[in-house]
Design a protein around this nucleic acid. Structure first.
Lengths: 415, 415
DNA sequence: TTGTACGCGTTATCAA
DNA sequence: TTGATAACGCGTACAA
């Protein structure tokens, strides 16, 4: 491997000139630049990342701290983040925490040594004080599909406004915060006060679900939430949007097995309910599986909604109405925020709130649909079979069993 | 951040002594060691990975080259690999290739600069010559759920034995190669000849599926394979095991949408078939969704099998009979192989062949099961409802629609 | 057994 | 605009 020194001597210039050309510094003559570039090409020189790291203290590596990569929401977020990081010349290492604070702590501690920054999904574990973190090694919180966190405090606006920890709230994708109305004020939880974060507006999402379900005539709602604890921001947003709805939470992780269990509990506790609103697609898919097993028509008797828009939701029967988080945009903001901090931005913690959108699918609309109820997802191929004309999807032969269910499907919530 | 120099002066010893203690070199007196360790503790010194990297040329980072992290098989493999790497003091960066050879090439080229080694899932893209890779930066191929590759050549044994590229075949988990019988001989494809690999024995897996389907009386099989190309080793193993079965392949990726399409094609092309054998769980789940939509009983009229044992297979209706790849063990072998190469092992390319096992579930057994047909999965909680006593699963209330289907379910393949 | 001194490849300071 | 030179923190011949 040739070094810069060899490049320099071959080009007949000094080491520093090579460095200047390589790093694109402004004050270099075209002549020198050309000589250096030729020498680099001839020698096949490539920068030594190790030496560069030693010098700059940077690795170009971002850690993604996530509880479990195997969940769809985590792997989707990871893929989005990796793609975006690569676009911006960074790499991503995965650090699964298995939900244990000590693992998160270790990842955070390794920042500066192995990573330039940590992107942490969800809230910081309770035992970790954000003030103890070195500001030179940025930590960005992401509160999205995997774990929405206390995003909007329940405190009255004046109290929130008085608080010293009030952050700048940006709304890059439409003025989300403004649109939430005046009754609540954005305020970060204590753990997030001094940390950057990119969140989705969980209240707006919850209200979108609420509005949609009203549109399709559902009012007796049971919420299947996330486990109590750090990651239940959207769950609480749901319980605000559906003021009287009971909330069932899994004891551990919000996976499909939990979705089955909770759905069974919901049926037992509220037999007359007409909608299961889930804080996580995985829960919703588990719930669908139980409802199917029990012969309960979806959405005929019970509508189901999810959150996260994982791919699987397009292949369930019925397809799953859900909240799409706009992961590419989310990832872009995360990486940009990381880069800004890395570039020396020392401004107070920035809070970016993105707005999700609802994808109306069969688990609330039914197979035939109920006609256009607004935008039905802009992404290509997400909702190919949800046009107003019914039955023109990729399922040419109607399912007799589904047809049997469809009778009661259209009546109750159109009346 | 304190440096080793400061530690040395505080301990009253030389830099080299600190280095010795830190790196656990043998020739150090207990007295010096203790002094150094105290100084380290007092100063809170931690090694500077950047400096260490510059000196050693190592980063402790492994790249995982994978087409798309969002697929279940990829994220499961990634999680297993990350966990195992961490146990062995290494980290993993994710490098999605999106199936493009140039991306793989870039990852490979970055090896040595950013990574110590590359773990590549599937076969190397055609354009990449393994001989062109620097042996100092090991590349380990993994042919498992995501992409089984040409594992057992179709050439007759004598030809294979004559070939100069014959590798040492290990069978750490039972003598897989020995059990394949004499008719075929392990031989790596050209691309794999000079590269280490950890594979699963796809022929053994295929024969396990074949045997199980015979046991439950299925013989008119259609194979839903992976896309033609590099990653279709298990598909071809299936077509060997089921000699006369037609093989349908997706044009692009083997995902759920493809599973739906192929299932529809299979029904059209072979209406009398009684089993869909899929090379990928995702395909199988897509197929299940289509069959359900068409009101076709599974396994009543058609049995379905998958490959990979992704979590979702436990939550489909019916639950999915599949091949479990033993990812933790696979990951262990991969990381150990990487470490061996990193530690200077220059022996010829090693081939490790692991044996998968079949998990018999409802998509071939039916809800009631057909009595014990062998081990039904050892992992806790994988097959909770598959005991010989029927109907004791987590579904207390029978699904009327399923009950209607169940009539023909039990007869055809018990006779 | 311990210490000295050098080199790894790069970036940055400062004088020319 | 350019160039000599000093770090960056650690590992390791080599000498003691």
């Amino acid at each position: 491997m040739p070094t810069m020194k060899e490049v320099a001597s071959r080009a007949g210039v000094s080491l520093k000139s090579v460095s200047r050309v390589v790093n694109g510094h402004p004050n270099t003559s075209a002549e020198v630049r050309e000589k250096v570039e030729r020498a680099i090409a001839e020698l096949g020189w490539r920068p030594n990342t190790h030496a560069r790291s030693l010098r700059t203290g940077r690795t170009g590596l971002i850690a993604l701290s996530v509880p479990d990569l195997r969940t769809s929401s985590a792997s989707h977020l990871a893929q989005a983040l990796v793609s975006e990081a690569e676009r911006q010349g960074l790499r991503v290492a995965i650090e699964p925490s298995h939900g244990r604070a000590e693992r998160v702590r270790r990842t955070l501690d390794a920042c500066g040594a192995s990573f330039d920054a940590v992107v942490h999904v969800g809230a910081l574990p309770a035992g970790i004080d954000p003030a103890s973190l070195d500001p030179a090694h940025p930590v960005v919180l992401v509160r999205a599909a995997e774990s929405l966190e206390q995003a909007w405090a329940d405190a009255p606006p004046e109290a929130a406004a008085d608080g010293p920890a009030r952050d700048a709230a940006d709304e890059p994708a439409g003025n989300a915060a403004g649109a939430t109305g005046g009754s609540r004020t954005p305020r970060d939880g204590a753990a997030a006060a001094s940390l950057d974060s990119v969140d989705t507006d969980s209240d707006a999402s919850a209200r979108a679900v609420h509005h949609h379900l009203r549109t399709v005539g559902r009012s007796r709602v049971v919420i299947l939430g996330r486990e109590a604890g750090a990651a239940d921001g959207f769950t609480r947003a749901l319980s605000r949007a559906f003021a009287d709805a009971p909330v069932l939470r899994p004891s551990h992780t919000a996976d499909r097995a939990a979705g089955r269990e909770l759905a069974a509990q919901a049926l037992a506790a509220a037999p007359a309910s007409d909608a299961l609103v889930c804080a996580e697609d995985e829960l919703a898919i588990g719930a669908l599986s139980l409802l199917h097993e029990r012969g309960i028509a979806v959405p005929g008797r019970i509508a189901v909604t999810g959150h996260g828009n994982i791919d699987d939701g397009q292949f369930t029967t019925p397809t799953l109405t859900t909240i799409d988080l706009g992961l590419p945009s989310l990832a872009r903001h995360v990486v940009e925020q990381v880069r800004a901090r890395l570039d020396g931005d020392r401004s107070p913690a920035r809070r970016i709130v993105l707005r999700a959108r609802i994808l109306r699918r069969e688990s609330t609309l039914g197979l035939g649909g109920i006609g256009p109820t607004g935008a039905v997802g802009g992404a290509a191929g997400i909702d190919p079979d949800l046009g107003p004309g019914s039955g023109s999807g990729p399922s040419p032969a109607p399912d007799p069993a589904a047809a049997a269910d469809r009778g009661p499907e259209e009546a109750p919530w159109l009346g």
